[in-house]
Structure formats: C-alpha cells, structure tokens
Simulated scan of single mutants.
Amino acid sequence: MTIHPAGVTKYTITADRTSIRRLHDAINTRNVCAIPVQHPVHGPRLLCLRPVERSWTERPADEPPTSGPVMLYLTLPDSEITIIFRGKRRRNLTTALSEILLTDTA
C-alpha cells in the first residue's frame, strides 16, 4: 500500500498488509506502534503512531477512552511530518484502514 501522509509527496511511503494491520490494531487499542515502511529515497523507515493524551476534562463524558486522538509521524533524515487525527478524522482513518484490510488480495 502506498501512503501519502497529509498528501505531501516528500513523505510518500509504502507498507505491507501486516504493517497496516498493526497500525489499525494500535489505533483501536490506543497502543503505541512503529511499523516498517519503505521510502523511495531514504529506504527503510518507521511510521509511528501513539495516542495523544488528554486530561479527563478534555474528553466528553459519553466518549469512550479508546476513541481519543492519535498522532501519526514519520521522520526522514532532513525533516519530520506529524499528523494528529481527532474525532471524525480519526474515525475516517480507522474506516479506511478497515476497508483496505477487507480488500481481497487476489
């Protein structure tokens, strides 16, 4: 799978199905993960994900603790991109990854 974080070509990477599964699972369980990816110029890299911690006052009472924002980031030798997925954007990311994982590979 080719990934374009924030639509920025400089950070385009590829990841295999196993890595996408790990990323998907980490989002849903609010765990930290670093998946191996391939950058066309800089070679093997790690795409990292971690939950964004919020105080109990920032979380609506009816929101499950596992649905909070997550931070996705990729470091290159000369720069880094960080994207925080909150609310609807986080749900859209999870949905997109779910659909990718359901796609038949045949």
Rank of each mutant, 00 (worst) to 15 (best):
M1T: 05
M1V: 06
H4L: 13
H4E: 12
P5E: 07
A6C: 08
G7E: 07
V8N: 13
T9V: 15
K10T: 12
I13T: 02
I13S: 00
T14W: 09
A15Q: 07
D16H: 09
R17A: 14
T18G: 14
S19Q: 13
H24R: 14
D25N: 14
I27R: 03
V32L: 10
A34W: 03
I35R: 07
P36M: 06
H39S: 11
H39Y: 08
P40L: 06
V41M: 10
G43S: 10
P44F: 09
R45E: 07
R45V: 00
L46V: 05
C48G: 03
L49H: 02
L49D: 01
P51L: 01
P51D: 04
P51R: 04
P51A: 02
V52S: 02
V52F: 01
E53S: 11
E53M: 07
R54N: 07
S55F: 01
S55K: 02
W56M: 10
T57C: 04
T57E: 13
R59T: 12
R59P: 00
D62L: 06
E63N: 08
P64E: 15
P64W: 03
P65I: 06
T66C: 11
T66F: 10
S67I: 00
P69Y: 01
P69D: 08
P69K: 01
V70E: 01
M71A: 15
M71K: 13
L72I: 08
L72T: 03
L72H: 00
Y73K: 04
L74S: 06
T75M: 13
T75C: 12
T75A: 12
P77R: 09
P77H: 06
D78S: 11
D78N: 12
S79I: 05
S79E: 14
T82H: 15
I83V: 14
I84K: 10
G87W: 09
G87T: 10
R89W: 01
R89F: 03
R90Q: 08
R91I: 06
N92S: 12
T94V: 10
T94R: 08
T95W: 08
A96W: 11
S98D: 11
E99W: 05
I100T: 06
I100L: 13
I100R: 00
L101P: 05
D104K: 09
T105I: 12
T105N: 14
T105H: 13
A106H: 15
